[in-house]
Design a protein around this nucleic acid. Structure first.
Lengths: 230, 230
DNA sequence: GCGATGTTTCGGCCCGCGCCAAAGCCTTGG
DNA sequence: CCAAGGCTTTGGCGCGGGCCGAAACATCGC
């Protein structure tokens, strides 16, 4: 009765409100210092330090020493994906942290999911790429088609570098607010970076929200036309 | 700093070894009585009863009264999927419940993931369906193609009934042992049932293992030819 | 009805763990 | 160097919650 992996450790990490707050804060994709995380979670630096060690030992976050700061990030793509899945389950069961706050609609519209775009905008982009035949179900999960490769180059992505990386190019991730897939993986991360580079959007100062500029939104809507389903 | 769903409650459920054992036991897809779960988790009936109430209130399991027994099952597809995701993360981080036991290879080869087939066999089936063009990325997630529909009828599935159900027909689920997708959703569940009906395979008495008969395995391999990638 | 079986509720024990303040360590900047 | 800032370690407090035994319900077979 004891075969298979052990969920318990990870569950215990998520089960404490302080640690959960830290992890959700890190879902924003930015590396945060121990002090910032302490403030974010509402505890003293001492308490936060202990939690960070636990999270690190459990393999959920990575810590990088830099000067006299210690920056924490999620340990990887998979951690973000698992968190998003759990957020979806929690949302489905009606477990809300507080009565949906004013910032909630913004989060549902567009947010960062660790390192790629999520929310309505993320789903729109995914759907558009699928509808135009740029993404397909390959022999191993998702794949970029030949026309898709051309599109990516045109969008300003460095495909050669992305494909050289160990990280899979395309992954799908179930969006908690839309309950549909959005694009993760190296390609998803590259698209989000490109949105920031080109100034179409910028990340909110705190939390995971992504806000588009007016023109950026218009350009995004033509680049990822929502009605483009063939 | 308090927007979005609240993971904490679900995390706390998974964080206790007793509850985690119960949930993993329920991943086998069979409905289990309170007593069976108590034995499975190694606690008294009194303790198990308390945990079952908690899990039920958190929305992770459903309880059905039947005679003097109370049968528990996972609350649904999404719970199974979330658990599988966490199992994957735990496996990736090397959190094992004990040094991989003798039954572990069997689990990796073929097992039940709540109500559909997982493990190497599950991935093989998914790949085969994709390679033959029976599954495609539709406008909304996965879709069965026209030839796919014909295949499903030929395999003995009642497509009309499946499509009438509220439940989505096709979903992909990331397999923890293979780290690749296998097929979930109504179609995935129907295929697994069919494997049992036709006697190609049967579920292990305890746990999640699925064992094929010799001829069943051969038939499965031709029905879901692994090399069938066009 | 009356035991047998399955499950829940109650009371009480006790361990684990989150929390903080204070002190110590390391890095940086003057 | 010394002082300041950021983080960790240590020690001690206190709460939350898992665990069990015993008793109370509920259900079935006879």
């Amino acid at each position: 009765m004891k075969e298979g992996p052990d969920i318990t450790r990870i569950g215990a990490m998520l089960g404490d409100p302080t640690r959960a707050n830290m992890l959700v804060a890190l879902m924003g994709g930015k590396a945060l210092t121990a002090g910032e995380l302490a403030f974010e979670a509402g505890v003293t630096a001492a308490t936060a330090s202990g939690h960070l060690r636990q999270l690190s030992q459990a393999g959920l976050i990575a810590i990088r020493q830099q000067g006299r700061h210690r920056y924490a990030t999620l340990a990887g793509d998979e951690v973000g994906h698992a968190l998003e899945t759990l957020l979806g389950l929690a949302a489905a069961n009606g477990h809300l942290r507080s009565r949906t706050g004013p910032r909630d609609p913004g989060l549902r519209a567009a947010r960062v999911c660790y390192d790629h775009l999520a929310g309505a905008a993320g789903v729109q982009a995914f759907d558009s790429l699928v509808a135009r035949g740029f993404l397909e179900l390959g022999p191993d999960a998702l794949a970029l088609t030949a026309p898709g490769r051309a599109w990516a180059q045109g969008f300003g992505l460095d495909l050669a570098r992305l494909e050289a990386a160990r990280r899979p190019l395309c992954r799908s991730c179930l969006d908690w607010s839309e309950r549909r897939s959005h694009l993760a993986g190296g390609l998803g991360a590259a698209i989000l970076s490109r949105l920031f580079e080109t100034g179409w959007a910028r990340r909110g100062d705190s939390g995971r929200a992504v806000t588009f500029t007016a023109t950026g939104r218009a350009l995004f809507d033509t680049a990822f036309a929502p009605g483009a389903r063939s």
